[in-house]
Each structure stands twice: as structure tokens, then as C-alpha cells.
Amino acid sequence: MNRPLKRSNAPIFWGLFGAGGMLAALLGPMLIFITGIAVPLGLLLPRSAMNYAAMLAFARHPLGKGFIFIVIALFLWHAAHRLFHSLHDIGIHGGTLAKLLTYGLAAAGTVIAAGALLATGF
């Protein structure tokens, strides 16, 4: 530990991980229930709640856009960080390759989500 100390860049990734984890814990189960159970089965919510027209309108509304973007991007960053560190824990020290496969995928997913949401129009 004698060499000069270098500040770690981890807070960026740890911050995204933390934010994604909090969001996943708060919204994840509810989203699975709505999109995977309630709407397809017509339980509590009408099936039409998620038809094409409704979802397009949701994705075109600035708040809807923001919600979709945040949910996709932060969930991905959370998963990437967890996978990267779990690989390290079980003895796979992939270095740059592991970083590319985890954080790289999250970054790509973020850019694609942003592009797709912009392409959907307002």
C-alpha cells in the first residue's frame, strides 16, 4: 500500500448499482405483477390497459419516456455490477473482457433504450 493512492472510479458504477437496486426492489415486483400477470390475465386491470395504442401514448409522454428509460437503464446497470462482482467472487477474474460483457452490455442497453425512446416520437 505504499504507492501513491489513486482515487477509485467505483462510485460511478456503485451509484448506478445502488440506484438500480433500490428501484428494482421498489418497482420490480409490481412491474412483474402488472405486465406479466394482472394485464395478460385481466386480473384487477383490463387487458386493454397495455394494448399498442395505450403503450405508444405512454412511451410518447415525457414522463412515460423518463420512466421507461430509467427502469431499463438502471436495472441493467444494477445487474451488470452484480454479475461483474459475482464473477470475481467465484474466482473468474475476467478483467477488461468481463467489464465489457457486463458494463458494456448495460451501456449498450442504455443507448439503445434512449435511441428507441427518441425514435418513438413525442
Binding site: L5, R7, S8, A10, P11, W14, H85
Partner: peptide, 16 residues
């Protein structure tokens, strides 16, 4: 803080 925030610092931990 210099030590806490360094590469040798807290972010090594994976919360086991």
C-alpha cells in the same frame, strides 16, 4: 477519506 476512496479502499468489498 483519501484512503477510503482509493482503489485499495472500501470499493473492494462486495458485501459478503
Amino acid at each position: 477519506m483519501e484512503l477510503v476512496a482509493a482503489e485499495e479502499g472500501v470499493f473492494h468489498c462486495t458485501a459478503v
